[in-house]
Design a protein around this nucleic acid. Structure first.
Length: 259
DNA sequence: ACTAATGTTGTAGG
DNA sequence: GCCTACAACATTAG
């Protein structure tokens, strides 16, 4: 569910509500999502809250609590408990809930940034065009699975890859080696513009996503291809097509996005 | 009943 | 080592 813009929106909402607070206790309702002894954060203060790719990081007094929301994870400040509440963080003066229907999310605690997070790729919003081009040049295969790979760039998911490729006029099946330099530069711009606009609109709420206050985003109303199979392309009117690439549903305009 | 869903990871094969 | 396909994880919605 939550890609970079959704996680960014959650972190921005959470920041003023949790930073500086003491984690008094942690209640693990369902242990499936908990991957390391996170109750070690009890008694620690949340010094900073930030996003790393699609992960939410809570930098505490003596270590880092990292949360990946999987497909249906939610972090809710002072929300109501549901049948899907998996972890409850009791803070001094606030409650933070981790809700997750499918339980694909993961919570970790460690004194240092865990290896699986230290190895992810750069943030697409902080990546210069020249660096993006240099990284692309070293890769083989098709562009869509590459953009979904968190070791290449950290934060893009299925929605924003389809949207960015549409804006750049690139067919999702295109071999990376066949993308010209100007076209790759256009892709870099398209990725950043799409992410910035999505953050501005509070992310995309397709089915589950809500921010830390429980509010939906509105960027789904501005999707140009994602979840628009059969609907007319905003540029040429051609029906948007849906195919499968790399085992993921892929949406594109067959006229505006040629190989 | 069947399929697909905003994600990641381990395994196997080319 | 790199890339791809597939299954698995658990649950809901159409």
């Amino acid at each position: 569910m939550p890609e970079l813009p959704e996680v960014e929106t959650i972190v921005r909402g959470l920041k003023p509500l949790v930073e500086g607070r003491l984690i008094e206790s942690v209640e693990i309702v369902a242990g499936l999502v908990v991957k390391s002894p996170i109750d070690a954060v009890e008694g620690q203060i949340i010094r900073a809250t930030r996003r790393l790719g699609k992960n939410v990081l809570f930098e505490c007094t003596r270590g880092i609590l990292s949360i990946h929301l999987g497909m249906t994870g939610k972090l809710l400040a002072d929300g109501a408990l549901t049948p899907y509440t998996r972890v409850i963080f009791h803070l001094n003066g606030a409650t933070l809930l981790y809700d997750d229907i499918r339980q694909f999310g993961r919570l970790h605690y460690a004194p240092e940034l865990p290896q699986h997070l230290a190895l992810i790729g750069p943030d697409p919003l902080r990546l210069e065009a020249s660096d993006f081009l240099a990284r692309l040049k070293r890769k083989k295969g098709r562009i869509k699975p590459l953009l979904l790979n968190q070791h290449f760039l950290a934060g893009l998911g299925n929605i924003y890859v389809d949207e960015a490729l549409f804006r750049a006029g690139i067919h999702p099946n295109t071999l990376v080696s066949a993308i010209s330099k100007p076209r790759a530069a256009r892709l870099h711009t398209a990725i950043q513009e799409t992410l910035h606009e999505a953050i501005h609109h509070g992310g995309s709420s397709i089915s589950d996503y809500v921010d830390a206050a429980g509010r939906k985003g509105s960027f789904q109303e501005r999707h140009r291809v994602y979840d628009r199979e059969g609907a007319p392309c905003i540029h040429c009117g051609t029906p948007i097509r849906r195919i499968v690439i790399g085992q993921r549903g892929t949406h594109f305009c067959p006229k505006c996005q040629k190989g």
